[in-house]
Amino acid sequence: MHNAIRKDKFEISELRGLPSGYYILRKQGSYLQSRGLLETLTITDIPLHAESSSLTFFHPEAMKFFECGDIAFVSPKGVLRVVLSKLANHNTLLVTERCDNLCLFCSQPPKDNDDSWLLSQAAMAAIEFDSNESLGISGGEPLIYGQSFIKFLDTLIDYKCDKSLHILSNGRKFSDTKFTLELAKRRKDIDLTFGIPLYSSVPHIHDMLVGSIGAFRDTMQGLINAGNAGIKIELRIIPTKENIDTLSQTVELVSRSISNVVQFSIMNMEATGWARKNWKQLYIDPIKYAEELEKSVLVAHSAGLPAFLFNYPLCHIKAELEPLALKSISDWKNFYPEECSDCSKKYQCSGFFTSSKGIFHEAPRRIV
């Protein structure tokens, strides 16, 4: 794999005996103030003596990639991953690996185990993390546990956690009007935005891409309910060979039908998870849909709604769209190929995913 800008994952064999979950990180010799909701792991770059604390662990380089108070997730295999960091350009918490969709390009294929315990752990991690930056919440499908997700929000509210939350959801749970209205009550106490995908205005195309018959119906009803309840919606679309001909129609459908949409996000596909095995069926070079992409942005703008492009290298889109292309790839999975070294727009550009190599890589095209 290409080297990412910031490392986030470290193997420490001595961690294998610890329960899986979230922990607060401390650098040896540093003071850490916490609320005591999570256990603290102390990391040192000095080899340990036998009498060292049971929660102090050695790694020769990990200390360079986190700050005191950052939050890590420890897996049963002894892998420590820094998930909330003051050094990161984006922070996201995983609250479940379960999902009621099976998207053909899912970057983190779902599991069917009961992992509802992650919600309470994630709540404690969010509260302990000393940052006022917006926090991402992802899955799986975060709303799959229904009332437990509302309890997760209530815990944050009770502890006066003032972070705004950006929650990635397929929106299907919002087809339950009672649940939607109950969740919407929390808006007065915590800032919530839901990133919800609608991959096509044609029902069978959306259902095919998400691997679930009836998903379009549920998501459309969910979008209507959420918008009418005052819940902020970021509408997400990933262009593929299967849906590209309906891209601008989808933007128009949402613009005319759904309330409280605050932004359209059109996202280039990442070559990870199930996207890799379906790459030939799905991936389409942005150059091939440049006109449709520009048309979709214009449809959004004509409706008075902002539209942005995510994960697109600037050299893969029309110059007119460059101001809308955000530097969006998380630093722990972001890199710039050698060809980008002399580009004057490198530091404005999203760059590439570290998973972008071989048949999954569209080479940079010289623009300056």
Rank of each mutant, 00 (worst) to 15 (best):
G227K: 06
D218S: 14
I231N: 05
R217V: 03
L223F: 04
P239E: 00
N225E: 05
T219N: 06
S212D: 13
K232D: 14
H204E: 12
S201T: 03
H204F: 10
P239H: 02
I213S: 15
L235A: 14
N228V: 07
E234N: 04
E234M: 06
K232H: 09
D207T: 08
G230S: 10
G227L: 01
M220C: 13
I224C: 03
A229S: 15
K232Q: 13
D218M: 07
T240G: 01
T240K: 00
K232E: 15
I238E: 00
S212Y: 13
P203V: 05
S212F: 03
H206S: 03
A229W: 10
I213Y: 12
G222H: 13
P203H: 11
I224Q: 12
G214C: 11
I213M: 11
F216K: 02
I233E: 14
D207I: 12
I224V: 06
V210E: 08
A226T: 14
F216W: 14
G227Y: 06
A229L: 11
R217D: 06
N225A: 02
L235K: 09
I224R: 15
D218G: 09
L209T: 12
D207C: 10
R217F: 06
V210K: 01
S201F: 03
S201D: 11
T240A: 00
E234D: 11
T240M: 01
I213L: 14
